[in-house]
Nucleic acid binder design. Structure first.
Lengths: 150, 150
DNA sequence: GATGCCCCTTACCATCGTTGGAAGGTCAAG
DNA sequence: CTTGACCTTCCAACGATGGTAAGGGGCATC
């Protein structure tokens, strides 16, 4: 199976398949005489596993952990559960940050007339954060910022 | 005012101030004879504006928009409100994605014995997503992924 | 006036996951 | 044989931030 086919059936782009191979997340694919990578259904299975884990927000490093547990038939489900729960906690933190942001902005927008007058509580708050719906607590400079999604 | 002082009083690191200048988010700072950048209280004010907007999750491109409205005294608060509301909608989308992820994982973890047996519904779902708490709907490959926060 | 310390400058490199492109080889169909 | 779709490798970029290194200035203290 070509990399293109593997990409289509797994949902992981060919670019990313090569990247995952390069970074060691997945083992080096077999090569045909032409140099083309050759994928088995089992490889595609693994790729779909990765894809699914990415969709669930796991970082590649975490997926690495999950993959070794997946490959290890004698794995303990407790290990997997631990990783999953740690990830859930991470997700909750980010959700909280985002909700704080949205709440702050929502309050400001509600106070905003939204007409053609230059008075704007949103800009005013950006200038000098108010107390009411302040978002300057839990997330300072490093937390709650989202990755740019292309 | 030195860049260090400006950084301290604005909450934006010196590094980022230079970066913002380089990328055109803020105008080039005045220079003293020594070559040091020189910042006025107004500049610091602007930096705090930026900082606050970053804390609220605005991307730099959005902050650019906000900054021009901020500088434009005849701005219409409707414009600001529009930007803010679009941003809120973005935040809500991401929150939804994250909540779906957390819910899916939570369900799986609840079903997981968490003992030393190899049977693990979490891994099973990663292999072949189930229907119950599937998270394969709204967020496919590009949505809901978080930026890595160092 | 010299010494030490901190700050400043520019200029790279790394991160993380992903996408894009260029330059060239392979394969299957016409 | 040609064409076009595929594959290969390599290199670069994104966005925001941190780090580091080398070289020089500013200021307080001796």
């Amino acid at each position: 199976m070509n990399i293109g086919e593997a990409a289509k059936t797994s949902g992981v782009s060919a670019k990313m398949i090569r990247y995952y191979e390069q970074t060691g997340l997945i083992p080096k694919a077999d090569r045909r005489d032409s140099g083309y990578r050759d994928y088995s259904p089992a490889d595609v299975h693994m790729l779909r596993f990765i894809r699914r884990a990415r969709d669930l927000g796991f970082a590649v490093a975490e997926i690495n952990e999950l993959l070794s547990l997946w490959r290890d038939k004698s794995r303990q489900s407790a290990d997997v559960k631990r990783i999953a729960q740690a990830h859930i906690a991470q997700l909750r933190e980010r959700i909280d940050s985002l909700e704080q942001m949205a709440a702050t902005l929502g309050t400001l927008a509600d106070c905003c007339a939204g007409d053609d007058r230059p008075d704007c509580p949103i800009l005013a708050d950006l200038e000098e954060p108010g107390d009411g719906a302040s978002a300057s607590g839990p997330f300072t400079s490093k937390t709650g910022r989202l990755r740019h999604r292309p």
